[in-house]
Design a protein around this nucleic acid. Sequence first.
DNA 1: GCTTGTCTTTGACATGCATCAAAGATAGTC
DNA 2: GACTATCTTTGATGCATGTCAAAGACAAGC
Lengths: 293, 293
Amino acid sequence: MRVTEYDNSARYHISVVTPFATSETLVETKPRPIEVDRPLTGPNERGTGAVNFLRDAIPRPQAGNNSPCAACPVRDLSFCNALSDEELDHLNRVSSDVALTSGQSLFDEGAPADHVFNVTSGAMKVYKLLSDGRRQITGFLFPGDFLGLSTRDAYAYSAEAVCSTELCRFNRQKLENLLKDFPKVERRLLGIANDELALAQDQMLILGRKTAKEKIASFLLMLSKRAEKSGGQSNPIALPITRTDMADYLGLTTETVSRTITQLKTSGLITLMQGNEVRLENREALEEMAEGE
Amino acid sequence: MRVTEYDNSARYHISVVTPFATSETLVETKPRPIEVDRPLTGPNERGTGAVNFLRDAIPRPQAGNNSPCAACPVRDLSFCNALSDEELDHLNRVSSDVALTSGQSLFDEGAPADHVFNVTSGAMKVYKLLSDGRRQITGFLFPGDFLGLSTRDAYAYSAEAVCSTELCRFNRQKLENLLKDFPKVERRLLGIANDELALAQDQMLILGRKTAKEKIASFLLMLSKRAEKSGGQSNPIALPITRTDMADYLGLTTETVSRTITQLKTSGLITLMQGNEVRLENREALEEMAEGE
DNA sequence: GCTTGTCTTTGACATGCATCAAAGATAGTC
DNA sequence: GACTATCTTTGATGCATGTCAAAGACAAGC
């Protein structure tokens, strides 16, 4: 994990935003050096010419300064959008960058919760473990999603990158101090927490009462809706998540996930495509299946 | 459901606080009239002489006025404790009382979310349904717990009384307007939402990855910790919850819940007592069982 | 283009929990 | 105290999903 602290000089914070990493990074299991340091001034060479669908898709107020936050590609998706450009400057002072390769850990359950994070590109998974290794993934996080907030001093779960992922990091103490001056942000965070709570309740229904088929259908639809929400394509959907991770998210085994997906494929509801993409052939039928109708 | 709106005249808001209703109310399935209206002035006759362990157990700043909120028995457990007595007066103006009998519904999933609630006595369950009747209880709520907050305009779940239950009701719109003036409350609500989120994640681990035995052990310990937190006795614990509700909370059937409890009883880990109470005979062993060790 | 490691799929079999059924147990009512 | 309704317990059986095993499929690296 490489971390670059921002000083307060003007520079750009530019990320090549992809909802998921391209397929060749998905099987990456060993750390690979990723350049996250930025030149002190001038445009970032990696950003030039890159297609940034998020920035293209979502209108954003003109950035009034050069702070990395003002140019952040996920600003409109995350809690920071409660702030004006000027106020963002304050936020910027307590933020830094983190880049993770596929499979790399961000923090472990029980570690001191010194930072909170915002996903800017890629995808994260958060999970809890039992002592014998059983794992429950409690959520996948995509660009704009917030991570690490807690009332305790220790993280309540572990977080790991699903693919190459970049995050914006905030010192928790400093951020909390800032919040006192920006109740707008606090209100926004409350909204985010409530949305997450609603998702968690949906997930409980899935885990406790749905069959394998219903679980897989629900999961695919959830990914589709989520991609649409953040400006990506909702069909076909990117599926950078391994069978094992899907299983640990849905309370199943990899074998059952695989068999169930084969069933959906055979019955013509989905098609597995090149590059870990899945096309939903009959969304309505999937919706019905997901709700057990 | 009987509702009494407060006007702003001084009166008392006194509840007989019991963590759970006494056993004779537990099997109550038909509505029974419960007096919730208060006299406009003077002490509430039902409150006189009642033992209120919450008020006894938890120190509270001296109430400076006569608002019902200032005398609320769960004030220190709920979000309202972020406010001074004076500020509570504002809150009081948008609040009213609700009394439910066992099994009575407070609201259904999808209904307009016009109010939020605070449990003052008894216990609630919140749940989601599938179209064929399968049910997932996503949480039990006890005195001091908050209920109904949402970013949507419709409730995301249904809520029903587990036993005779009293709640404090707030008009959502008015409360939200008030929040703008009281960022302290917003911060408190954020903390509450985060705590609930942590609970939801624990529950996902239970639902997705634990065996029936581990689920039951986790549940009993959760009840014990929860009772302790709100000043009740942690052992033996009150268990006003039916096998069916436990099953729908843990993703099991009533039969499996019953068999598993019998197993725990047979192996000497717990004792079922008079009046729906359960004594944990070996908390450490239960903890280990709950964690799958 | 072969090797290697990981991920996915498929098959055979096992089992934890669900389902179906019915007999206690308990509390409320008359 | 008998009647009724609901809740709980127990038994017999079945099935959805887990477990174990091994053969593809795919991508990365040499």
